[in-house]
């Protein structure tokens, strides 16, 4: 920001910088550098602690589906099934949340009565304030029992689609339930990013469309959505990053498992984050190190997704 770089401020006379200035600037710079050090430290310590188990692993860490890590020698474990579950849960959440989030953002920016808009946006933000463990409790204590008849209906009527093949789980503690809860959790993130970019659409573009006789929807389609594309995509990717790493809702809804299943109505899948939370208290031998290795994979995936999202958003801002 050029406004804060203060080019007009006279620098202190050369040769005698005040001691207070030097110390304070050093503190500020040190804090900034500390951020970089912490981030590098997260990667470094995870790698250091994951290394013993990875070196001793007798199975292929990326593709193997077993988890025999709680032993003193010859552990055999891999994140194959867990990575699949993680991506599947995040994909379900993203598919459910993105259209709704765009709708909410449009509603708040263009449809809601002006006076109410701020309040309604604030209500959506409240969704982000609810702790994930409460979502987990809600998912297992309220939502899952409600979904049992829905899943039975899905299995009965749409069972010919492999995704919905029956028999449906009687507890509804499945990857689809986890995905629905994750969708609710990432809804405010995608909404916030989309709202920001919708607010930035130049008034001229919108008024030009309306002046040509466009209806409100045509104005949105012609002026708002093309302009906001990068913000929506970036927001969706940020939401995906959150969904990939979300732990508690998944750990509470899904039971420990190592299967790979495309069936959304039966239990069997588990995510990396959920697996770590469920297995950590019982980890012995190489167990902790192996879980740290799994966390390293999760860290790498979310890092790539988040950096991609920030890059897309930043590029969109530059173009506009």
């Amino acid at each position: 920001m050029t406004t804060t770089d203060a080019p007009t401020v006279a620098p202190p006379p050369k040769g005698r910088r005040r001691i207070g200035d030097v110390v304070f600037a050093g503190l500020a710079r040190g804090s900034g550098l500390l951020i970089l050090v912490i981030l590098a430290g997260v990667a470094a310590f995870l790698i250091v602690q994951a290394w013993p188990s990875l070196a001793a692993n007798t199975a292929n860490f990326i593709t193997d589906r077993s988890w025999d890590a709680n032993v003193r020698e010859n552990p055999a474990f891999g994140v194959g099934s867990l990575a699949f579950g993680t991506v599947l849960a995040a994909a379900i959440a993203l598919l459910l949340a993105t259209p709704v989030a765009i709708g909410i953002a449009l509603f708040i920016v263009y449809y809601a009565p002006r006076r109410l808009a701020a309040l309604l946006g604030y209500l959506v933000d409240l969704l982000a304030a609810i702790p994930s463990v409460v979502y987990g409790l809600w998912g297992i204590g309220f939502l899952a029992p409600q979904l049992v008849p829905v899943y039975e209906g899905l299995a009965r009527n749409l069972g010919w689609i492999p995704l919905f093949a029956g028999p449906a789980s009687t507890s509804a503690r499945t990857i689809l339930t986890a995905g629905i809860v994750l969708a609710v959790m990432i809804l405010p993130i995608i909404t916030a990013m989309s709202r920001d970019v919708f607010h930035q659409v130049p008034q001229g573009h919108r008024e030009a469309a309306l002046a040509m006789g466009a209806t409100r929807w045509e104005m949105i389609r012609l002026a708002v959505l093309p302009f906001g594309k990068s913000g929506i995509v970036g927001g969706a990717m940020l939401g995906m990053g959150r969904a990939l790493g979300e732990t508690m809702a998944v750990a509470m809804i899904l039971s420990p498992s190592l299967a790979i299943s495309w069936n959304l109505l039966q239990s069997g899948n588990q995510t990396i984050a959920g697996h770590i939370a469920l297995q950590y208290p019982e980890a012995t031998g190489y167990g902790v190190s192996a879980l740290i290795a799994a966390g390293l994979v999760l860290f790498a995936i979310t890092l790539v997704v988040n950096m991609g999202a920030r890059y897309i958003v930043a590029r969109g801002n530059k173009e506009s």
Binding site: I35, L39, V42, L46, Q49, T247, L298, N306, M307
Partner: peptide, 27 residues
Amino acid sequence: AIMFFVDVMTGIPSIVAGLFVVALWIL
């Protein structure tokens, strides 16, 4: 660089932050 990495840091999964401290504490 710092602004970018602060943004990236907001996206660290909470369980990874926990594992980081576990790794540090073991050392």
